[in-house]
Amino acid sequence: MKTILLIEDNLSIRENTCELLELEGYKVICASNGKTGLQLAKKELPDIILSDVAMPMMNGHELFAALKKDSSTRDIPFVLLTSSVEKKEIQAALEKGVNGFIGKPFEKDVLFQKISFLLLENNS
């Protein structure tokens, strides 16, 4: 069973997304901010990380940079859940190596497809 680390500060979105992914058959670990998310990522070494951008303590971009610094977490696929529609911001993050973007609000199928695609790509 693949493990997903979900980092999101909004309680409803966090719980709902977590439940959706569990129903799809994944093991989900949740964190409410970037800092906890980083600790959990190092500890649990999930197969994929989904993260919100605007969060207290450490935002999505900072978290990604921190993950890239650590050899154990460097290769974990990283997807940003973002409210931003700024193309520049998306472009800049993709150039830094973020594996994917999912714009809010998102359809569950888009979320599932993105995750299964990235997991498959990472395995091969």
Partner: peptide, 16 residues
Amino acid sequence: RTPLTAILSSISLIEM
């Protein structure tokens, strides 16, 4: 987007 995301995810769950 934040409340809309919550709404959409709740609806998705009810669907599932």
